[in-house]
Each structure stands twice: as structure tokens, then as C-alpha cells.
Design a protein around this nucleic acid. Sequence first.
DNA 1: TTGTACGCGTTATCAC
DNA 2: GTGATAACGCGTACAA
Lengths: 352, 352
Amino acid sequence: MNDHSGTRTRATLRDVARLAGVHPATASRALNEATRSLVTATTVQRVVAAAEELAYRPNPIARGLRTSRSFTIGVVIPDLTNPLFPPIVRGIEDTLNRSGYGTLATNTDNDPARERNAIETLRAREVDGLIIATARRDDEALEELIESNVPVALVNRRLLDRRLPLAAVDDRKGIREAVAHLAELGHERIAHIGASRALSTGDQRYQGFIEAMRGMGLDPDPDLIHLGESFTEPEGARLCGALLDADRGMTAIVAGNDLIALGCYDAMDERGVACPAQISVVGFNDMPFVARFSPPMTTIRIPHYEMGVAAAELLLERIEFPDAAVREVLLEPALVVRGSTAPPPGVGLSNR
Amino acid sequence: MNDHSGTRTRATLRDVARLAGVHPATASRALNEATRSLVTATTVQRVVAAAEELAYRPNPIARGLRTSRSFTIGVVIPDLTNPLFPPIVRGIEDTLNRSGYGTLATNTDNDPARERNAIETLRAREVDGLIIATARRDDEALEELIESNVPVALVNRRLLDRRLPLAAVDDRKGIREAVAHLAELGHERIAHIGASRALSTGDQRYQGFIEAMRGMGLDPDPDLIHLGESFTEPEGARLCGALLDADRGMTAIVAGNDLIALGCYDAMDERGVACPAQISVVGFNDMPFVARFSPPMTTIRIPHYEMGVAAAELLLERIEFPDAAVREVLLEPALVVRGSTAPPPGVGLSNR
DNA sequence: TTGTACGCGTTATCAC
DNA sequence: GTGATAACGCGTACAA
């Protein structure tokens, strides 16, 4: 009727009230889940019908001003372009959207200055909470955040002292499965090529490796453990190349993640070392398409989407009950055996 | 100094005004770049100093309520988990962040209802503009959007009549290069396995195929053209399987995208057909890691990140100059030859 | 049960 | 050049 000439401006609460023949305050109560019980059922119906007819959508900005809530969550990740993060972010977004929150995402490329800046910008925007997936273990920006009382949840990283809720995978367990798989195949000289212990996951996986080796009664040879700067293919290639050239007699590699494992493929190809015939490789993450590589990669599967969901739930919980105890959700990794692992050179033959 | 006892609540404009001994309105003018010239220099100084001291940060929500600008842009994509989108989204976010905008992202899984809902939610949040990457060609939600005068830019999709700015790649040209490459290798019986023409890119690539074949003096056999529902691996496998079983004597396939090409790999593996020895395959997009597949995939590379950047710039332009002519940015695709293409069975031999 | 009145933090638009 | 005032759209004490 009155919205001829195109959908000019959106219907406001006042419009709904007018159409329903009630006061805006009443309309507000009728539309608001929590206060609906204060209003007569028939009035509620009229208001709801009016809202429907006008396609009324409350203005979150106005509501936010009143309630000092923005229904927006900041998400800070290193790099969306890293195949690890899209499923995590989707898990976060799906979950948060369902609860009426929007997500403001920022990439920091693991640069501390950019991270600090991102957090500040997000806070200036009055986000109701923050989900942080950047990876360093020491982090001043995070310290400040803890003091500021802004609700925060961490994904895929670990603070030493459990002051912040966390959704992550049990890295040590994952590595343990990788090592166990290799040990069962008969490997003893197992190398670990990982990333810096300054990165939360780098540290966990390193520790997991040491533990797992000892647990299997194997000796974690320091000469077979190389930790690089980052979880990247070039780093994997560099470190693996060095290990190969040093000729330390390893028959298997537990890589810190799939990208590093891929770097190992590269270094081995370059030197004509066959995988898995001569050296087995296990990755970590089970990124998309690793099953299509040659050889198809044996790796540890991480439920990334679920990790995002869990982080979002943790944050929601934190927003609703700020004083509840800090929880950690640890998801289960799973070994996926494919083509990059086999018995070590001698064993396969002698067994037949 | 004075912010002992923790950062309780942020300073407001009124606080700044009080400290500077001026009226809030004056403080507002002094702090606002655009209106600063209306205020005496010394007053400006006092206000700025006061703001500094209180670490004043304007409340974007309140400002947004008043100015009805949110400095937030909505980004609507089908699925972040599709390797196509992360670089696009990063390009968008990087560019927009640099201009002070935040981005609110939503995934629709190409479901029209969810798309409609997402757009509505985003508009209710008073986003200053929308970037839309969903793919269908006919789109009521989009029609409404055009009428509503909300600034919009499209990425990677095409409306028939240039009513909206667009950043995309020249799909037809990409397909032309694929066909030319195959033709040069000696192929004549070339198939096209694509996605529905209801999808903007599906349609473009289909048309490109027809054109290119004719351009090379080849006959686009309708029996060798199969269009599926979506750009997915299972669809590729299904369609390619059907084509293989029908035994129409094709020697090469131009796939609608890399995922479909991957499906072709699957169907061929299943039937013991060798790629590229018996049939060559060309993909589209150059997703991460396709060089790692076996065989490494020959495909068309798309500058995805740049596409995102271009879309963001287009939108910014649109926000600033709503009445400027609608522009389209068409990026250049590039053929990347790898291992999935070779001369057709007969030719390679007879040439030696 | 519903209406009144006010305030959230800013800025636009008047006066002065 | 600056101050007063209203208004953006909504939620909520308080009054009726």
C-alpha cells in the first residue's frame, strides 16, 4: 500500500506499532523473546502480524547503542588463504550467525603488530567478543585482552596457563598416533620436522613427538629433530633437504603439518629418494586434496569445522556467563593411512 | 597514570568536552576531520589534547545510528570452503580494511533462500555496501537490491545487462585458450563438461566453448557437451563417466573448473582410461595444489586475489560516487600447461 | 497489561 | 565560532 515507489526505507519499530495500533514500547516487548510474556497473547499476534507485513527487521545499530552490544564478533586469523582456516572460519560463522551474531574477520599474517592493530580496531568497533586463531605462544596483545575483560576464545592455539577458553585438537595425541603407526611398520630412525616452538602448535607437536618416541621405547635422536620458522612448504623442503644431505639413516619423517610434509616430498624428489619405498612421511591436518598427491599422503585428520564450531560455542558461553570457569575443548585427531607410509627398506622384504 | 583500576568504561565525547571545557557539539566538530575548519585552532588543540588524555575513541555504533553509516561491508559468498573463495575474500578484506571498513561475511551454499536471508540480515545491519559472489544468473534478491540503491559490487558472476559493477575474469577467453591449446596438440573431438547455464560462470564457459571451437574451425558436437548441476567433483565424475560409456570417440575434455576436471580423473581411473595418453583434460581456476595431482593438471589460471581487490575498489567507488557509470573489470586468465594434456593417441606417434 | 518518558553517544541544524 | 537542541531506533524503569 504505502510502500509504492520502491522499498525506500526500512520499516521501524514505530511503523510496526502504528500498524498494530499499539505503542512502540508494547511492540518492542511483543517482539522481544524475553519480554513477550508481559504482553497479551492477542496483542502479540497483532504486532507479529504487523511486523511480518512490513518485513520489519530490528535495527541492530540502534539496539546496540541501547544495550551496548553490537552482536558482532571479531575473528583474528593469520591467513585465510592457508587451507587450514576456511573450515574453521566457516564453523565459527555458521555457529555465530545462528545465534544472531555477525563476524568481522581480519588476517594478520602472524605479524604481531598487525595482530595488535586488528584487535584494537575490532575493540573500537565494540565487538561483543573475539575469537583468536593466531599462533604465537607469547603474546602481549593477548595479555592486555585478558585484563580488559572482553570475552575471548582461542582456536587452535594454546596459552600455557588456561586463562582463556580454547578449542583445539589434541596435538600430542595426533603425533602419538603418527609415531605409533610408523613404529608398527617397523621404523626406528624416525625424524621430526616441525615449526618453531614459539608457535603454540609447533611446541605441542614437538613435545608430542618426544613423548611418543619414548612411549614406544624409541630414542628421539636430537639430530633427527629439525624445527623451522613456519609451517610452510619451503621450510619443509629446506629442513628435509638438510637432513637428507646429512645422511643420518632415517627411514621415516613425522612432519609438523601437511605443508611441511609436502616440502619433504619436494626435497626427496630433488634427490631421487623414493617415498615411501625409502622414506615414509606422515603429515598433519589432512588438508583438502592431500589424498590426490603422489604419493597420497598419510596424515592426521583434524576436525577443523568442528573446531570452529566449538570455539564459537565457547565464546557464546563466555558472553553469557562471564564468570563461569574457563573451559577447554579438545577434539580428537585421527590417523588416515594412505600411500606415503610403508615398512622401512629392509623390513618389507625380509618379512615376506 | 590515570587509568589505574583497569580500563573500566571508555571515555565518551561528553567526557572529552567536559575536560576541554567546551560543548559536546564543539568537541565533535573539532574531532571530525571534515568539520574541523569550523572551529578555532586553539579550541581544536584543547579538544584534541583532552581526547588524547582520555584515550577517547568515538563509538562507531552511536555514530552509525546518527549518520546511518556503519563502515561495514557485507560479503556474500557460496562457500568459503571452496578453494576458489579464500583468495577472493582476502583480496576484499585487505582492500576494505585499508579504507577503514570491516567486512561481515556470510556463506549461502548457493541456496537462494539463504542468500536472500543473508542479504536481508546484512542490510538490517546497515552495511554500507555489499559484495556478492554467489553464482546464479537470475536472482530476485539481486533485483531488489538494485532497486534499493544499496551500493553493490559483483565478483566472479555476471548479470546480463551491466546494471551492477563487476570484477571477474574473462571466462570466454580462458576457455578459448584451453581449446586452442588442445587444438594445437591435434585434438578435434573435444568435449565440454561444465555446470548449469543457470550459473553465470557455467553459461559463460559454455558459450566460450562453442565460440572457441568454431573459431578453431572445429565442430562443437552437442553429444560431447554435458552440463551438470554444479561445479563439483561428483558431477564431473558422473558426466565424464556417461561420456566415456557412450564411447563417442573424444580425445580431450575442457572441464568447467578444476573440481569437474578432478571428477574426470576419477571417472577415467575407474574405467582404466589413461590421462593424458588416451584423453587430455584441461581444468579451470588453477586451485592450490593442482600441480600436485597425478597427472599434474593443465588448467586456466585466474587471479583470484586481484579479483577480490578489484571488487572492493569497485564498491568503494560506488559508495563515493553513486551516480558514476557502472564499470566492469575483466581480468586476464592464463593457460598453465602441465601434465594432463598431450597429443591425441594417434598423433603423437605418427609425428615421430 | 499497556503507555510515558528518557537515555544510549553522536552529529545535523538551528540559534546566538 | 560556539552552544543548545533534536534526532537516529530501540529498550526499559516507571507510571497508569
